[in-house]
Computed example of a mutant assay.
Amino acid sequence: MIPVTKPYLPSREKLDRYIDGIYERAWLTNNGELVQQLTQRLEEYLGVENLLLVANGTLALQIAYRALDISGRSELTEAITTPFTFVATASSLKWEGVYPAFTDIDPNTWCLDPSLIEEAITPRTRALVPVHVFGNACDVEAIDEIASQHNLKVIYDASHAFGVNYKGESLLKHGDAATLSFHATKLFHTGEGGAIVFKKKEDLERAKKMINFGITGPEAIEELGINAKMSELHAAMGLCVLDEKESNHDARVAVWKAYERGLKPCGQLQAWSPHATQNCAYFPLALKSETQLKELLDVLAGEDILARRYFYPSLNQLAQLQSSCQKTCINSQNLANRIICLPLYVGITPSASQRIIDLIRSVA
């Protein structure tokens, strides 16, 4: 079977050495030595400051909302976001008492359309939560300008954008915060984990308190907090994966480029920002119709090949996320009905990728 994705497993020998150190120190959590090492190395690798490791990507979003003071309000609060994303982007907002005000996407880049944002702003709007979809950079200048004019916070969900540079610098530098997911199937992972990159040091310091129950000393509690800390065991996995990041990336690039060459005539490919690098985290393909998509899924499944509908359905259609600011998002709904992501991970052979291409060509 060829799954849609598979976790990258680094050198077991190296991982065991890190685990031996954990046993020697008997320090499993609470900002241990490996968490500190991984924080420093990721800041260097990504070219950012004010990075905070957390237990997962969903908590990264929730902590960012709280640290930037857009959640936990008594009055109705809204944040403008995209309906074409993983459910956690929006469900984490609603979990924090912030209603997701869905605004449609650009039909080519598949990211939030800046031209539609201003008309969606209301007196209840506190923030913008755009997503760098599949790692493709949003129109960050336009979004940041709108936020500045309307005094709104910007939290970029950058879960797919690990290692992406924009105009020569990390894409994660844009916004008041950018969040990352280090889930097992991500380009870089810690098994489970995530991170937040803050623009301001003071927001980082506040978030540090929040992820440790608000505790700042033996008898001091300064924030309403939660437990969102990353453990030493997860940091050990991250350090090993980071050591092998380049070989991992090169293997994915080979598969991604084969798909790109072979599938251009078969459907719509994402229009990539000309200013952003490509991290080859996903290979999405939008087919002509949902009927064609379902036919292709059946053909692939018949050959033990699993593709997946990322992202379906369009989140504005989910009952759990309905709100007073609900509206139709035609571009997102249309795309969600006809898009799949193809298998992409280290270990797919050239013959396997060509087999997938041939099967898609037989349908599309």
Score class of each variant (00 low, 15 high):
residue 4 V to P: 05
residue 5 T to Y: 10
residue 5 T to R: 12
residue 10 P to A: 11
residue 11 S to F: 13
residue 13 E to D: 06
residue 17 R to A: 07
residue 18 Y to G: 04
residue 18 Y to A: 00
residue 18 Y to N: 03
residue 19 I to D: 00
residue 20 D to V: 08
residue 20 D to C: 06
residue 22 I to T: 08
residue 26 A to D: 10
residue 27 W to Q: 12
residue 33 E to R: 15
residue 34 L to D: 02
residue 35 V to H: 09
residue 35 V to K: 09
residue 38 L to M: 12
residue 38 L to Q: 03
residue 39 T to S: 10
residue 39 T to H: 10
residue 42 L to Q: 10
residue 45 Y to T: 03
residue 46 L to F: 02
residue 51 L to V: 00
residue 59 L to H: 05
residue 64 A to R: 02
residue 65 Y to H: 07
residue 66 R to M: 04
residue 66 R to Q: 10
residue 68 L to V: 03
residue 68 L to F: 00
residue 71 S to G: 12
residue 80 I to G: 01
residue 86 F to M: 13
residue 87 V to L: 08
residue 89 T to S: 15
residue 89 T to E: 02
residue 93 L to W: 01
residue 101 A to M: 05
residue 102 F to I: 01
residue 103 T to L: 01
residue 106 D to R: 01
residue 106 D to W: 02
residue 106 D to L: 00
residue 107 P to G: 09
residue 111 C to L: 03
residue 116 L to F: 04
residue 122 T to V: 03
residue 123 P to M: 09
residue 125 T to L: 05
residue 129 V to T: 14
residue 133 V to I: 11
residue 136 N to L: 07
residue 137 A to S: 12
residue 137 A to K: 08
residue 145 E to S: 11
residue 146 I to T: 05
residue 149 Q to N: 12
residue 150 H to E: 13
residue 151 N to K: 14
residue 151 N to C: 09
residue 153 K to C: 00
residue 153 K to R: 09
residue 154 V to M: 07
residue 162 F to R: 00
residue 171 L to D: 03
residue 174 H to T: 08
residue 174 H to F: 11
residue 181 S to T: 14
residue 182 F to T: 05
residue 185 T to N: 11
residue 189 H to C: 09
residue 196 I to T: 07
residue 202 E to T: 14
residue 204 L to C: 03
residue 215 I to G: 04
residue 216 T to H: 15
residue 219 E to S: 15
residue 221 I to Y: 07
residue 222 E to S: 13
residue 228 A to V: 01
residue 229 K to E: 11
residue 234 H to F: 15
residue 239 L to V: 05
residue 240 C to G: 04
residue 244 E to Y: 09
residue 247 S to M: 12
residue 250 D to S: 11
residue 254 A to Q: 15
residue 260 E to N: 13
residue 264 K to D: 04
residue 265 P to T: 06
residue 269 L to P: 00
residue 281 A to C: 14
residue 283 F to R: 03
residue 285 L to D: 08
residue 286 A to V: 07
residue 287 L to H: 05
residue 288 K to Y: 13
residue 291 T to Q: 14
residue 292 Q to H: 06
residue 305 I to N: 05
residue 308 R to G: 05
residue 311 F to D: 00
residue 333 Q to C: 13
residue 335 L to A: 13
residue 337 N to Q: 15
residue 339 I to L: 07
residue 344 L to H: 09
residue 356 I to A: 11
residue 359 L to P: 00
